[in-house]
Structure formats: structure tokens, C-alpha cells
Simulated scan of single mutants.
Amino acid sequence: MRAPGAEAPASRRVPRTTPRTATRRPVRRWLTSYALLAPALVLFGLFVLYPLVQAVRISMTDSTGIGEARFTGLDNYARMVGDPVFWRAAGNTVLLALVSVPTSVATGFGLALLLRERLPARGLFRALFLAPYVLSGVVVAMAGRWIFDQEVGVVDRALTQLGLPAPDWQSSGAAAAVSVFVVLFWARTGLVVVLYLSALQGVDRDVLEAAELDGASRRQRVRYVTWPLLRPTTFFVVVLMVVEVFQTFDVVRVMTGGGPAGATEILVTYAYAQGFQARAEGYGSAIGVVVFSVVLLATVVAWWVQRDSEEVA
């Protein structure tokens, strides 16, 4: 027992924190955090933020890439309102997103459930599904162009052998749009499969076994247990696929070039045609800014919907 007035042992002394020390700690943490983030922030500024600012600036000029550009304000954006080709490209882009995103998500989820089971050569199938996404978009588009070629295409030969009429893939608008959709579906679904496979590894087996003991069938377990647990993954996949659709360029450019008669023209290919072929850089940049704004708005809205649904749950 320590006598009154005696000092506490050195090992039991608690160092006092002065106000100055308490103030320095958050500052040090703040500086350390931003020092670690500095390389990524610099790269983001150089390759994302600066080009975006430049695109907005050019979109308010009549730049042609040659000579001095004159500031025109919002004239390029007003031009879009009366441009029927722009609205057709916008409609094609939205239609492609509405068709391809749900199809890729549903198919990818189903294939992920199948590949989760113990199947022979399961690893090989996983690699085959991801291969089109890993390959260059130009390579995939060239393969798709050969497959759907009107003269020597595999699809036309197979249809002819079956006694069915072969569509004019390069000269018919509807057929060209179908060919682009099929190639994009083939190229993008593999990524969805891999993302869902990774998410399925994190599903608690005990929850599924408890549902099975309660009498839930396999279909009910997928619908009421697995699918709700994968909601964050589904949100990420949907946003990613929407962004992919709005950024699609190489497949459409190589396969159809936006034709025939603009049937497969989408916003990105139209912006390229205006900026680099028609030499209307200002107008092409304005279309690019609109695409970026739409994708950003869709992402924010989807994020708000996802957050509200999680709060309700």
C-alpha cells in the first residue's frame, strides 16, 4: 500500500496529453493520408480531370482543330436540339442499354450459379467466359464481323444449311443492330459472371442451409436468400454495364461504322464522326460532355436508390 504523498511508480504513470499534442495528431494523420493519396490524385488530375475541363472548354467553341477557335457559348448544345442524327444516336444508345444490361445481368447471374457447382473443367469454363472481355475490343469486333459476314459468315452458312433465310447483316438496319448486340453481349457477360462468382463466394453457407432446413426449395433459396444478399453486387454490375454501353466505341466502329444509314449509330461513334471526320471538334466535344453528364446522373440516381433501399431494409 502506497503511503500518502508518495509518487506513483514510473510504470503506472499515465502521460498527460497537452492540448498542443492533441491538435498535432489529427494534422499528422491528415498529412499522412494526403501524402499517400498524392500520386493517385496527380494521375487523376492529369488523365481525368484536366481532359474533362478541356472538353468542356472546347465544347463552347467552334473549334475545328485548325486555326483559332472562337467562343460560341452554348451554341453547340443548342445545335443538338435540332439535330435528328443526334437524337437517333441517343435513342440507339438508350435502347442498347435497356436491352443489353438486363440481359447481361440475368445471364451472368445464372451462369455464375451454374459455375459455382462442382462441374468438370469448371476453371476452364470460367476462363472462357472472361476471355472476350480480356481481349481487345477491336479483336472481338473483327471476330464478330467475320461471324456475321453476309458472304462468308458462320451464322449465314449455318442458317443456309438449315434451310432458313440469311439476314443481310451489313445492309439491313435491324439485322446490323442485332449483330452488334450479340457481340457486345458475348464480350461483356463474362465480366458479369466473374463478378457474381466472386460475390457468391461470400454468401454465408449457414444461411442457405438454414433456409433449406426450413423447407425452401432451390429456386426459393436463390430468389429470397441469395439474390437479396447480392444486391450491392448487382448495383455495381448494373452501373458498370451502363457505363460500358455508353462508352462502347470499338465494336460498333469496326463492325458497322454506325451504319447502315445510322441504324447502329450511338452517341460515342457520332461524337467521333463529328470531331474527327467532320472536323467539328466543338460539337463533338459537346456530345461527349452530354454523354459524361448522363452517365454521372444515372450513377448518382442509382446510388441514391440503392442507399434508400438499404435504409428501408
Rank of each mutant, 00 (worst) to 15 (best):
L36R: 02
T107V: 15
L36Y: 10
R57C: 05
R25H: 09
L111E: 00
Q54N: 13
T103H: 02
A40N: 09
S63A: 15
A89R: 00
E117V: 08
V105Q: 00
T103D: 04
P9K: 01
S11E: 14
T93I: 00
L52S: 14
A38L: 13
R20V: 14
T72N: 05
V48F: 05
T107N: 06
N92H: 02
A35Q: 11
F71A: 15
P9Y: 00
V105E: 01
S100C: 11
Y77H: 07
A8F: 10
T23V: 14
R13C: 03
R70C: 12
P19A: 07
A35S: 15
E68N: 15
P51M: 07
T64N: 05
R25C: 08
G110K: 02
L37G: 07
R16A: 15
Q54D: 12
F47I: 13
L111F: 07
S63G: 02
G82L: 07
R24M: 15
P19L: 04
N76I: 02
S100W: 00
L98N: 06
L113Y: 01
A78S: 13
S104A: 14
G45H: 03
W87V: 01
D62G: 04
L114P: 05
R25T: 15
V14M: 11
R25V: 15
A106R: 07
L41F: 11
F44T: 14
E7L: 12
P15W: 08
L43W: 01
R24K: 12
L31Y: 09
T107W: 00
R57D: 08
R28Y: 05
G67V: 04
V105I: 13
E117L: 10
V94R: 03
F44G: 06
S59W: 03
M80F: 02
T21K: 08
S100V: 10
A89G: 06
R24H: 11
L96S: 05
W30Y: 12
L98I: 09
D83S: 07
V27Q: 14
L74G: 12
R24N: 12
V56G: 10
R20G: 13
L95G: 12
R88P: 03
E117S: 13
G67Q: 06
N92S: 06
G110H: 02
V14F: 06
V48K: 09
S104Y: 00
V48D: 04
S59K: 01
A78D: 11
R20F: 12
S59A: 14
S11L: 10
V56A: 14
L36V: 15
V99N: 04
P26E: 11
V99D: 03
A90E: 02
T64D: 03
L95W: 08
S59H: 04
T64H: 04
R25I: 14
R16Q: 13
A78Q: 11
T32C: 11
G91Q: 09
W30G: 15
L98F: 09
W87L: 06
T103I: 11
V53F: 11
G45P: 05
F109E: 01
T72Y: 00
M60G: 12
L95T: 07
T107E: 03
T72A: 04
V48R: 12
R25Y: 10
V101G: 02
R20L: 14
A55I: 12
L98W: 05
A40H: 07
N92P: 03
L113C: 11
